[in-house]
Write a protein that binds this DNA or RNA. Structure first.
Length: 735
DNA sequence: GCGAGTTATGTTTTT
DNA sequence: CATAACTCGC
């Protein structure tokens, strides 16, 4: 068959497997995406209708890309291609009644959730200081991903914390229900329950999606696992692809066991392993292989290079984070001068905050770049305000949206009034927007407040006949009529960009209007709730891509830079507590390394500014694991560079005072002062004759009896009397 | 009720 | 360091 002519034998086997369960264990760069697209094309060629195929990808971006690839193979359109979450929204809307919700539901993102959880904790008569909202949300999210309801938790909870959590969970869910809202986890849970409890729906869907494909299966959580099972249980035509070594979403509930035990769940499964790598050169694969071999909880899989030759991995030890940023920019500049396209260059880092200094250096060097970031755009105040108006229009029960905008822009409706209304609404068991129209409420308020509220209600109602139809004109109207346009970005310098942002939102709504057959506000809002800025990453732009290691999943570049190979950053300090989490950090680095085709640059800095503190760092243990020892001369396959800072070397103008202070933090008066008054500050690297290297956790000032608490690298924490501790402050090399 | 100014606080990764 | 929460004066 013509379609298959460029595929290997194992790829062909996977593509041509027509009936029954199929597991494709595919290492990095093994042509996994190709297998999926070809499989879809082959299925259609063999007579399967496109609309009977459902392919699930990990991100919206991946879904769009896959759609394009399938289309480019000359396959008729109509394949259902989406993420789990988008698919769930569609199914919930279609089976709204069985799912027990009306289809105009709001989707709450993390900032909405935060508001709700605080209310829930209060409703449960508990305090936010004992039950940290973020922790509670996390716990609830985990429970939902495990498909555990508040009721079920309540029956099994036997100690105080679990009981309290159950109570909070219950209240949290109650608020969501009252607001006719779902959070991200609910989307999955609803569908999982729908499939479990409505056999008729399940059969209908099995019949509709006769072939199910799931990419990145190693990162599915239990809810997603159950959805997959429900959607394929009757026909068994389930094809999943993934790589256990690239599972990096354990913290979000991803369960590596889903892929590890696929053969047990689907006894007749065919398993195809793709171990050849068509992406990276040998030195890169060797490093990746060595690294991942350190993971204990793992099925051994080979990485077989098919590309011969290649360059050494370049590892650079920089003086500090600024030197790293400028040194890296210099390297990028050189690559571009040597003919590399900026779009073939990417920089990966562990945390988003590391991008800031890079941006500065790239701007200085006039290197075009784009940042691939999570929810930056939709998290902006002005955007959230706009969307809150719109959400309220389609879902008047959405109290969170209402409370966001009832006094934005300011209309003289303050906290006291809102509290009164909210209390009345909750006692009457009606949404706040309903309550605003009740005469009983009006009796509680004075005339001027009543007038303000009536005006607000009239304002909202004036838009309500526009929710069916194009979104952009409505948005524009809302923006001006509410006077949001006049007040947006009032805080001085931000005004311009804030209005630009809203205009950008309106533009994107215009594109939505054009692209959808029947544009309407509900549909639009539910779609963009699942959209993230990383979906906007445009690989075709001639720009260097900056992103977190997580965002790098599924991508590949000729030239890859991975920065911040330091203990506490990669592996991240918050992840190094358990073996499982530590192994996930290793997989994260593995994912980063294996994105590179030709050149891989790895760097670490001796000093890094973290949370405003300029601290000595320890090189990442992963450096040793890829075969590079920071303390000895480089092994085969590596080129090492030690770069001492010198401003001239980086080719920028040191006369700019802003830059100068940024690159010479050693001389900052602030730090000198803190060292003079306190010999030890948290985070300071110290060494002890007996315990070795460690990091100061806390310094308790008590004059002669001061105590230093130190986390030693050996793994234990000790409190030492300063006068007996005999600690040495570890300074930079050569001091 | 509002907003400027101050103080506390919390920090990974994201659909 | 950056933002959220809070205080205080109008």
């Amino acid at each position: 068959m013509d379609l298959l002519k460029n595929l290997t034998e194992s790829q062909k086997k996977a593509v041509l497997h027509k009936q029954g369960p199929l597991l494709v264990i595919a290492g990095p760069g093994s042509g996994k995406t190709r297998v999926i697209t070809h499989r879809i094309a082959c299925l259609i060629e063999s007579g399967v209708k496109p609309w009977n195929i459902c392919a699930i990808t990990f991100t919206n971006k991946a879904s769009v890309e896959m759609q394009n690839r399938v289309a480019s193979m000359g396959v008729p359109s109509g394949v259902n291609l989406s993420t789990f979450h988008s698919l769930c929204v569609r199914l919930i809307r279609q089976y709204a009644q069985q799912a027990g919700i009306t289809s105009n539901f709001s989707i709450y993102d993390d900032s909405d959730q935060k508001r709700v959880i605080k209310q829930a904790i209060a409703d449960a008569d508990l305090s936010v200081s004992n039950f940290a909202p973020a922790k509670m949300l996390n716990a609830i999210s985990n429970l939902k991903n495990e498909l555990e309801t508040a009721e079920s938790l309540k029956t099994r909870a036997d100690e105080y914390f679990a009981k309290s959590l159950a109570k909070i969970y219950e209240k949290y869910q109650k608020i969501l229900t009252e607001n006719n809202a779902l959070d991200f986890d609910d989307l999955l849970m609803k569908v999982a329950f729908l499939l479990r409890e409505h056999p008729d729906v399940r059969s209908e869907l099995n019949n509709r999606f006769k072939y199910l494909l799931v990419d990145e299966y190693q990162d599915t959580n239990h809810a997603q696992y159950q959805i997959v099972k429900g959607l394929a249980i009757e026909h068994q035509n389930i094809c999943v692809t993934g790589d256990p070594d690239q599972s990096i979403y354990r913290w979000r509930g991803a369960d590596i066991r889903n892929i590890m035990s696929f053969e047990k769940d689907w006894p007749h499964a065919t398993v195809v392993k793709l171990e050849e790598n068509f992406r990276s050169c040998q030195s890169i694969l060797t490093a990746a292989d060595k690294l991942i071999a350190n993971n204990k909880n793992r099925k051994v899989k080979a990485l077989i290079a098919t590309i011969k030759g290649g360059e050494d991995i370049r590892i650079t030890d920089y003086e500090d984070d600024t030197a790293e940023a400028y040194g890296l920019s210099k390297n990028i500049k050189k690559l571009i001068e040597d003919g590399q396209s900026p779009s073939e260059i990417a920089v990966f880092y562990r945390v988003n905050s590391m991008s800031r200094i890079l941006e500065e250096a790239l701007v200085q060097n006039k290197i075009p770049y784009q940042i691939v970031r999570g929810v930056e755009f939709y998290g902006r105040k002005e955007i959230r305000d706009m969307l809150a108006y719109l959400k309220l229009l389609v879902n008047p029960a959405d109290n969170v949206a209402l409370q966001r905008i009832i006094n934005t822009p300011v209309r003289g409706i303050g906290k006291t009034t809102i509290d009164k209304i909210a209390e009345y609404a909750s006692s009457a068991g009606i949404p706040i927007f309903e309550a605003l129209k009740k005469t009983q409420l009006k009796e509680l308020l004075n005339a001027s407040t009543q007038a303000k509220l009536a005006k607000f209600v009239a304002l909202i109602e004036s838009f309500q006949n526009m929710t069916d139809g194009p979104v952009a004109p409505l948005m524009e109207k809302v923006f001006t009529v509410t006077k949001l346009a006049d007040t947006t970005g009032d805080d001085k310098n931000k005004s311009e960009s804030a209005i630009d942002n809203v205009n950008e939102l309106i533009n994107s709504a215009g594109i939505y209007d054009q692209q959808s057959e029947k544009p309407n506000l509900t549909d639009y809002l539910q779609a963009i709730a699942l959209y993230s800025d990383s979906d906007a990453y445009d690989a075709s732009q001639p720009k260097v891509a900056l992103m977190t290691l997580h965002a790098a999943k599924g991508l590949e570049f000729d030239n890859v830079f991975i920065i911040g190979l330091e203990d506490g950053i990669l592996p991240h300090e918050r992840s190094a507590v358990s073996q499982d989490e530590f192994e996930e950090e290793r997989r994260l680095f593995f994912v980063g390394i294996t994105r590179a085709r030709k050149r891989l640059f790895i760097s670490y800095a001796d000093y890094r500014t973290t949370r405003g503190q300029f601290l000595r760092t320890i090189p990442s243990p992963f450096l040793v694991e890829i075969g590079y020892n920071p303390l000895s001369s480089p092994a085969a396959g590596f080129t090492e560079k030690k770069q001492d800072f010198s401003s001239s070397e980086f080719g920028y103008d040191t006369s700019s005072s802003q830059i100068e202070s940024a690159i010479k933090p050693i001389a900052s008066p602030q730090r000198q002062a803190s060292q003079a008054s306190q010999p030890y500050i948290a985070g300071q690297l110290v060494s002890h004759k007996k315990f070795g290297f460690g990091r100061v956790q806390q310094f308790i000032e008590m004059g002669d009896n001061s105590i230093v608490v130190v986390n030693f690298n050996a793994g234990h924490t000790r409190s030492l009397m300063l006068k007996y501790a005999n600690l040495d402050i570890v300074n930079k090399k050569g001091d």
